[in-house]
Write a protein that binds this DNA or RNA. Structure first.
Length: 579
DNA sequence: GCCGTTTTCGGCCCGACTGTTTTCAGTCG
């Protein structure tokens, strides 16, 4: 018996089934049911395999009797029979083909049935030989489009997504530049960038203007924009120099709220919002709210009006993922902000792989308005050459004391470490040394490939260690480049709550680890979170913005975060304060 | 395939665009 599939693997199996059923011509609602189940699996904070064995998996939204059976089959045999059958029927190349613009599952299926086309290569050949136009519904224009799409490499890989910090930095500059235009009135970023998602695929900007045509044409002239075109007086589409698509829509002021709400999404949020509206006899679109009873359409100048008309509490954009923000009893959380943070407990200096000295980091943190920071260089076995030996760590403690003296108490600098969690679960300094520090954060940097059970044991051992105050980047994921290591996050949360060990939201823009779903589960499990920059240079202290973004998506309030507290209260949360 | 202030069947968000088509299905966001 191999180990159970992770929630992410189960979600992937459902997504695959959705694609296969779609090719097979299933009704769209059945396909959407599988996609919904995949979302539920990705966002579940407990092990779906475990729930299934307990017989309670159907308590998850969107998972009923049939999907339960399919999970059981996956657990027992490692396969879902329907998927095996459908894979044999529809070659994998068909799914690649559906990545081309204008070619969805229905049309791909038709080409497969009538011409036997089952790969991008065969599709390309048929387009070149002008054979596609023989099939009803296909013409010369489509053949052209196929050739140019395949030549552009579309189809070989999924659409590129850009990390939030890059997209949002560009998006904010574009918004600022548009706001400075004389024709501009309101200009706001929408879409996944506004929701502070992990990554985005384009920027959506919604505006009102005294002269819409002038604003729309102005997009092309912005320094950040490589090229743009305006198909009409109210919309422009462009690309930044890094290739990020930008959509600008100018709308009448009385409709601004409807458009901003619509284009902020998420898709799942909007679908749930509209379903809730239909139950009240209302129909929501980007143009307004149509009332069945009166036949009139209400146009909303602000988003607040949209939610108010629907009888819903306004949810901050970060919450709009259909994760309970539309539920009847929803109470808007007071989300944590960068300004709430009073300290940063994870950063590096020249002693390991950082670029600045202790004093430089301390002065930068002081300028940032912090009351306290911890210096946490990499430990003895970091393995990248830039580690701190036990002797060196002793000298580091003295250097921190010197800096504290020189700064005259303006900021409190803690002598700490980011100690490696060895495969055994032990830290790589001995307890006597850890006891002399002010602060210990522990992280996994090696042996990522352990099975979930061993990795969980390793992590729980570290969490239960008497001198480890917090776990750094607990799942090891790197957004769009590295999967989290196999880990029972629920068991980690339990252990952290029991032992009073903090779990970090690491703010490195490609980590944001814990992620939004896990951070929310941690808070619900009674864990105190920590939001850290993991800065390797003084200017990177600003990165806490991205950790805060993840925290906000996790419904996190200031009280859930240790480093929003003044020093005496924070100090008391450390394990060493309880000895 | 799921689900219930429409409760065990019959619904399941909304609209624009596209290319191919004489009225629209499929795709996309």
């Amino acid at each position: 018996m191999t180990s159970d599939p992770s929630n992410l693997q189960i979600a992937a199996a459902f997504d695959e089934l959705a694609d296969l059923y779609e090719l097979d011509g299933a009704i769209v609602h059945r396909v959407l049911a599988y996609r919904g189940a995949a979302k539920a699996a990705r966002e579940a904070t407990v092990s779906i395999a475990a729930l299934t064995r307990q017989g309670t998996v159907t308590s998850l939204p969107g998972i009923g009797k049939t999907l339960e059976e399919k999970i059981v089959a996956l657990l027992d045999t490692g396969e879902i029979p329907a998927a095996v059958k459908l894979r044999a029927k529809y070659p994998a190349g068909l799914l690649e083909m559906t990545r081309l613009p204008g070619l969805g599952p229905k049309r791909a299926r038709r080409l497969f049935d009538e011409l036997g086309i089952e790969s991008l290569a065969m599709l390309r050949a048929a387009a070149e030989q002008q054979k596609l136009r023989d099939v009803k519904g296909f013409g010369a224009k489509f053949e052209q489009s196929v050739l140019s799409s395949i030549d552009a490499g579309i189809g070989e890989r999924p659409a590129q997504r850009v990390l939030l910090h890059r997209a949002l930095t560009a998006g904010e500059q574009i918004v600022a530049a548009l706001r400075a235009h004389p024709a501009a009135e309101r200009v706001e970023l929408a879409g996944s960038a506004r929701r502070q998602a992990d990554s985005v695929k384009d920027l959506d900007i919604i505006a009102t203007a005294s002269d819409p045509g002038a604003l729309v044409r102005a997009l092309a002239d912005l320094e950040l924009i490589e090229s743009a075109s305006a198909p009409n007086e109210n919309a422009a589409r462009g690309r930044t120099h890094t290739g990020l698509p930008v959509d600008l829509r100018v709308v009448a002021p009385e409709n601004f709220g409807n458009l901003l709400q619509h284009f902020t999404g998420s898709a799942a949020h909007n679908v749930a919002l509209r379903e809730a509206a239909v139950r009240r006899g209302l129909h929501v679109s980007e143009y307004g709210i149509l009332d069945d009873a009166t036949g009139e359409t209400l146009r909303c100048a602000t988003e607040e009006e949209v939610y108010e008309r629907l009888g819903l509490t306004y949810p901050e954009p970060e919450l709009r993922e259909d994760r309970g923000e539309l539920a009847p009893g929803f109470v808007a959380p007071r989300l944590v902000t960068v300004e709430d943070l009073r300290g940063d407990l994870h950063m590096h200096t020249t002693a390991s792989d950082g670029r600045n000295t202790i004093e430089e980091m301390a002065r930068a943190a002081l300028a940032h308005g912090y009351e306290y920071i911890a210096i946490t260089d990499h430990s003895a076995t970091h393995g990248f050459g830039d580690h701190v030996t036990p002797d060196e760590l002793m000298r580091q403690i003295e250097r921190v004391a010197d800096v504290n003296e020189r700064l005259g108490g303006a900021i409190r600098v803690l002598a700490g470490t980011e100690t490696n969690i060895l495969p055994s679960g032990a830290p790589d300094y001995d307890d006597e040394l850890l006891a002399q520090l002010d602060w210990v954060i522990a992280s996994v940097h090696t042996s990522f490939g352990m099975p979930a059970e061993e990795m969980t044991k390793r992590m729980v051992a570290a969490i239960e260690h008497p001198w480890i105050d917090a776990i750094g980047h607990p799942t090891g994921r790197k957004i769009s480049s590295r999967q989290p290591y196999a880990l029972d996050v629920d068991a980690v949360i339990d252990a952290a709550a029991r032992s009073g060990t903090m779990l970090e939201i690491n703010s490195a823009p490609d980590r944001r680890d814990l992620n939004d779903v896990h951070a929310r589960a941690a808070v619900e499990g009674g864990v105190t979170l920590l939001i850290d920059s993991d800065a390797h240079g003084a200017e990177r202290l600003e990165h806490v913005r991205w950790g805060v973004a993840t925290a906000r998506r996790a419904w996190v309030e200031p009280a859930h975060v240790a480093n929003t507290r003044p020093w005496p209260q924070f100090a008391a949360l450390r394990k060493r304060a309880r000895k």
